[in-house]
Design a protein around this nucleic acid. Structure first.
Lengths: 122, 122
DNA sequence: AAGCTTACTTACCCACAGGTAAGTACCTGA
DNA sequence: TCAGGTACTTACCTGTGGGTAAGTAAGCTT
């Protein structure tokens, strides 16, 4: 193991920012936490249709390492863990917003479909 | 092969935008073209220390497919090809700017090094 | 006629991102 | 007593992103 890193060296700022966002589900996790404020592990899993438990945890751990996500453990049974964005994570989400709008426009432009996130009618 | 794609379906806008930016050198190419306006193949290669010719072309082709980059061929010998950003590419770069600043701040925060892009004293 | 230039193309290879699936510990409800 | 829910952990496997390096076409220079 001993992967992780994400400490450069980088070519430029975008490079450094991308390093933290790269990962199939990271931006989605950011989005999910931003919208719900606080989510439990299983809630996140249900909110990201297709994610495997392994990748979800791995990404959450890395984002915690990077200071984007806060992990709150409640010592109960059954276990309860709540994830939320840190200030830093919120700030990242903020600068991602314009990119998100650009992407939404791109979806219109190329007529891309949206993944059905139905179910979660909660 | 027949890879490429980059047509969704996507979970959200960020997802759709990331799809176009993902690739080790794409954001750097965007940056390079943004700063120089127009660059020849070999100039780009020199501007992105470490990039292989294969990846550079592959990325340029994909970005052309995606409408971000314009490729102008001059039928001369030796061959001359100029790459530049399209309006669409420029607009992507614009929304990436805040992300770039966030990344620059992150580099300060974690004390990351910058890749030396010396040489290119041109 | 050999060599240099540019802009690729092609074949081959490896590391790693990410998926699948089973296992763990603990308690609750049927 | 046993399935079910929580939040993971671990082992294993595969696809592919990206690297290396050699080859190609065409004309100019020496």
């Amino acid at each position: 193991m001993a992967k992780s890193a994400r400490r450069g060296p980088y070519f430029c700022g975008i490079d450094a920012a991308m390093d933290v966002v790269t990962g199939k589900w990271k931006s989605l996790i950011l989005w999910e936490l931003h919208h719900h404020g606080t989510r439990r592990f299983a809630e996140l899993r249900r909110g990201l249709p297709g994610v495997s438990e392994k990748m979800l945890i791995q990404h959450l751990r890395e984002m915690e390492e990077d200071g984007l996500v806060h992990r709150e453990v409640y010592r109960e049974v059954p276990p309860k863990v709540e994830y939320s964005l840190t200030e830093y994570g919120v700030s990242l989400n903020a600068v991602l917003a314009p990119l998100g709008e650009w992407g939404t426009e791109r979806m219109r432009r190329i007529g891309a479909e949206k993944v059905s996130v139905n179910a979660v009618t909660t």
